[in-house]
Design a protein around this nucleic acid. Sequence first.
DNA 1: CCTCCATCGTTGACGACCTCCACGATACCG
DNA 2: CGGTATCGTGGAGGTCGTCAACGATGGAGG
Lengths: 169, 169
Amino acid sequence: MEVLMGQPLTDDLGFLLSRASGVVVRATNAALVEHGLRVRQYSVLVLAADAAEGITQRELADVLGLDPSQVVLLVDELAASGLVERRPSSTDRRTKLVAATPRGREVRSAAARTAADGAGGPLAGLDQAERAQLRELLGRLLATGGAPDAPGSRGRSGSAPRTGAEPER
Amino acid sequence: MEVLMGQPLTDDLGFLLSRASGVVVRATNAALVEHGLRVRQYSVLVLAADAAEGITQRELADVLGLDPSQVVLLVDELAASGLVERRPSSTDRRTKLVAATPRGREVRSAAARTAADGAGGPLAGLDQAERAQLRELLGRLLATGGAPDAPGSRGRSGSAPRTGAEPER
DNA sequence: CCTCCATCGTTGACGACCTCCACGATACCG
DNA sequence: CGGTATCGTGGAGGTCGTCAACGATGGAGG
């Protein structure tokens, strides 16, 4: 038990994960400059554009695994660029629904291609099947995240009441 | 054409990668506090301990994908804690070999267990076979990193000019 | 109705991390 | 010998992660 070389480090999953993440994120960021976006902002834009009625900043922070305070800044920037806007919720005056503007949707589409293109570089070594496999594994990893990943998510445990439920009326 | 919804975002490899990386790194960091280390420092310690004669800071930056200036700080901290020391190279007076001290090796062993333990939480959902598979995929991804991942690595390309010449093994 | 408490968004602070640029010392090539 | 490249280092500037606190609101209970 003495020697017990944990691993050559290059076999450590944490190391590989953070390294791979860095490479892909860097490549994606580099590609997105052309749209004046960073991955974080792009992610918010995508989520806002995909939610017909807009998405709560709380949910944004939840899905992205970010502190709510960071979401504020991201939305601020996107709003300043005219890509999203904050709308008041008709049911809860505390929350603000973040929705993509028409121009936001345009940018989102263009950026999606650019981003996929940029990330394509580092991912060149993996074919479709392997990417799907990787998605599967990572998805499982995140699903069973025993530890809270979002700092600001105190107590926010369990099932979201009815996040994606259709706005009944 | 079709609407071409890039993806639900939760299916984007870049997103999953960065999310997973964050979760694992956070858990590992939390576990390592007990040794007064962060993942970065731990990585340097491992590499230094595994190299019998010590390792160049240049190589450190290369392997870790960091800017050389960051390596300086990491080594400074580890040296201040008495876990590693900088030795002059006998062949090149410019380089300094980073080697682990006896105490550094002890800490490294203990920390290895602690770290693996901490990372075990998020990884709970994956069995040995799946982890190996994940390692395989991530390793391949990093091996074919078309873009330079280490910022400070200007021109330092070299090593693997042949893109996946013969990935046999 | 009124009070206590949870939640949402927001702000501010602080430290960790990333990226780039420049420098002195040294090695190496011709 | 001169010119160029590399190693370690320092510093500036920006992004990101984490935490604590606050006003505004919602909701439960008396």
